[in-house]
Each structure stands twice: as structure tokens, then as C-alpha cells.
Design a protein around this nucleic acid. Structure first.
Lengths: 216, 216
DNA sequence: AAGCGGCACTTAACAGCGTTAAGGAGATGG
DNA sequence: CCATCTCCTTAACGCTGTTAAGTGCCGCTT
């Protein structure tokens, strides 16, 4: 009887499966037992590959980053503006691909030096464009934390694109804010059309960089 | 024997105590049993005041916000730049006051409409300065998510001001990035002097707002 | 061919978690 | 004096991350 033996696990396969599961159950439901079940294995088996759950989350964040890089086509001839647009749109898309993606990402650290290659490319492009290294770091990380903060807020309302978390009724909010007309009106502006608002916010940041560092 | 009876709890007192405890044990160690112990009560007693743990975290975030407002002195005659500086410096200070403050804050929703008053004041100031309401919303929330993202990253390295999380050895990082000279050099720029870098990032955002909306 | 070491996993168990159900003491009000 | 309401306790539930110990199988040496 050819009882096929499952190929042994490895860190990548575990992280892959965990990311798939994340989209179904969310970060709260992402237990080691559930991940193990998906891999046809018992929970303690995961401790052979990861020293603890955080190490697995770190690998998941790293995998998210790898997919982001794979999906972002960078051109050495990009202008610095194009580069900032590409990388931050790519980052947002990568985070939005997974339920609680921003939380997982910002709560973890990369395993190894995966991010060095892109970072080096960005910094070279920015310094070539005339910035000092500290300025280049400031520009890229300011855009980075903007995007991370933006998606964190966004996923608080939309766990996945198209899904809406409960407790965000715009009409009810407007009624609660009746004594504050601008705030009431702002609700519609805050909780809709995240795509456009991301673009506008990112444009503000990029515009600020150009103005401050005398670029273009 | 005058066995004093403890005054009954209320939501604020519980949230207060939980915030104090948060600074000692961090978000992971913030269990209902530990909070209850601090209040001289058993864990299930908390369920009289909160429907679940998330409701308590929401109250904690609300309390953080109240303290932020109390510590920030706003002037109706502020220029829009002054206002953005004050509110975002105040927000960062409020988040930094507690271990994992940014995580607690961004993972929770305010109870009630506490934030409406400040928001209304900000929006009025911005629209008076010549912005449309959508522009005012975009300006304030872009700065807001920048600050939130910044402190989230900051607290990943410095749980509390002065404390340093393990695993952030700059020399080791530099060695790991040996093949990427700019990235290696950037480490010193990224992981030090968060105060100054926050100011510079915030200045970039504010500069972008001024430039985009033709202010001043 | 036999034995052996190490890899990759299982079984069993532990303390601690959020949460619920049921009950009880003390004040309040009729 | 009993009923009611408030605020809390005791006991227990299922589930979590994690550790300890054991087991079967592979490749290697003798």
C-alpha cells in the first residue's frame, strides 16, 4: 500500500499556509493548532521549525515582504517620485492582501536581510538625485510610516477590501456628532474611498519631500 | 473592627489602573486577572463594568486620548501649522507615555464622542485658513497616520523612552548589511534620535500640506 | 547486515488565558 | 420584613502557547 509520506515541512511552507489561513480566520483565530491542522500535523511539530509563535509571525511578515518585492517592478531609471509612488503603493497592496496584514507586519521583524536589496536601491536612487543619506532615509521612512499607519487604520474599518467591520455606521456616527457639524460631515470623507485618500495623502508626503529638499 | 469597604469600581478607575499596569507588564502581560489583582478584586468582577476585554482596551485608549487633550494647550488663534505641530507632538507624547501605547491606541475605538471636540476645533481652524473640508480632513488625517505609524515603529525599538528592546544591535546589523553600504550606514540614521526624526518627518508632511493647498 | 544517530514528528501534559454561570452579601425602598 | 438591585465571588469551561518525553524512519558507519 503506497501510503505517501508527506514531504517534511520547512519555514516557508508553514508561513505560506499560515498566511492563507490568516485571511480566513484573522489574527485572533490564527492559532498554532489551526495552522498545524492545515498542514496535516500536530501543533508541537511547528516548534521544530520555529522557536515560538513570534518567530512564525516574523517569517510571515518576511514572506509578505518577499511577495511585495516580487509584485513591484522597479526601474533603476525611476525618478525619485516614481520610486516613492511604486514602493508605497506596493507596500499598501501587500498589506491589504491579508486580513490584519498591517498588524502582523508592524508587529514583526524580518528574518535575515531580505529588505536590504530594495533599500539599497532606493537609497542609491535618492542620493543620486541629490539628497544626502540622512535626507534619503528621512524621505523614505516618512513615506513608509505614513503608509503603514494608513493601512492600519484602513484595516480597522475594512479587514479585507470589500469587507466592512461592524460598528462603523456612518448615519449613526453623524447623529452622535450632531453638535459638531464639521466633524459630522467629515465622517463621509474619512470612512470612504480609501484608495483615493491614500493617493492624496501620499502625494502630500511626496510633495513635502520635494519642497523640503529642493528636488526637481 | 472598621473593615473599610472598598468604593465600588467604575470604568475610569479600571482603565486608569490598567494603564498603570500596562507600563509595568506590557500588552502581553496585561491580563484580566492581573488588572483585577491590582484593584483588589477577582477577574470576573470586571465583566460587570465591561462586556469583554476589548471594551476595557477601548476605555484605555479613550483615557489616553483624554490625557492627551488635557496636556495639549490649544489656542483658537493658532496658525494651522502650529496646530498640526501641537496636536501631533501631543499625540506622540501621549502614546509614548505607555508601553505598547501605539498598539493599544490603534487597536481600539473610542467610547462615545470624546474626540469630536478637538476634531471640530481643528477642522474649523483649517477651513477658516482657506481649505475645503475634504482638504482639511486629508491634511489632519495624513499627519495623524504618520504620527501613529511613526510611534508604532519607535515603540518596536523603544518600548518606553530610555528602554531598548533586544535584538537591535547596530554593529551586528551593519555587519549583516556589509554588501549594502548605504543600507548599512542608514542603520545609525534609522535607529537613533527618534525625537529629531519625528520632527523632521512631521515637517515634511506639514510642508507638503502647505505646498499642495497653497497655504501661507 | 546490524546498529546507530539524528531528523521530524506525536502524545501527553501544564499553567494560564478570556469568559460564563450561579450564587451571595449589602444597601435601598416599600 | 421582605423584595430588589448592585456589585462582587466561587467554580468551572474550553482554548491557548509551550515543554517534555517518546517514536518511527532515513542514511551512514562498521
Amino acid at each position: 500500500m503506497a501510503t505517501e509520506r508527506r514531504a517534511p515541512l520547512d519555514r516557508r511552507r508553514v508561513a505560506d499556509t499560515a498566511l492563507d489561513l490568516l485571511n480566513e480566520v484573522g489574527l485572533d483565530g490564527l492559532t498554532l493548532r489551526a495552522i498545524a491542522r492545515e498542514l496535516d500535523v500536530k501543533a508541537p511539530a511547528l516548534y521544530w521549525h520555529f522557536k515560538d509563535k513570534q518567530a512564525l509571525l516574523d517569517e510571515m511578515a518576511t514572506e509578505m515582504y518577499r511577495r511585495m518585492v516580487a509584485d513591484t517592478s522597479l526601474d533603476p531609471a525611476d525618478t525619485w517620485r516614481e520610486r516613492l509612488l511604486k514602493t508605497n503603493r506596493g507596500l499598501r497592496a501587500a498589506l491589504l492582501r491579508y486580513r490584519d496584514g498591517a498588524k502582523v507586519f508592524s508587529g514583526s521583524r524580518f528574518t535575515g536581510a531580505v529588505h536590504a536589496k530594495q533599500m539599497e536601491s532606493d537609497l542609491r536612487l535618492f542620493t543620486t538625485a541629490g539628497l544626502t543619506l540622512p535626507q534619503a532615509v528621512r524621505a523614505t521612512t516618512t513615506a513608509y510610516v505614513f503608509t503603514l499607519g494608513f493601512v492600519t487604520e484602513e484595516q480597522g474599518v475594512h479587514p479585507l477590501p470589500g469587507e466592512r467591520r461592524e460598528g462603523y455606521d456612518l448615519d449613526e456616527r453623524a447623529r452622535l456628532m450632531a453638535d459638531y457639524p464639521l466633524t459630522a460631515q467629515a465622517g463621509a470623507e474619512i470612512f470612504t474611498d480609501y484608495d483615493r485618500h491614500f493617493e492624496e495623502g501620499l502625494a502630500l508626503v511626496i510633495g513635502g519631500i520635494g519642497a523640503a529638499y529642493g528636488l526637481d
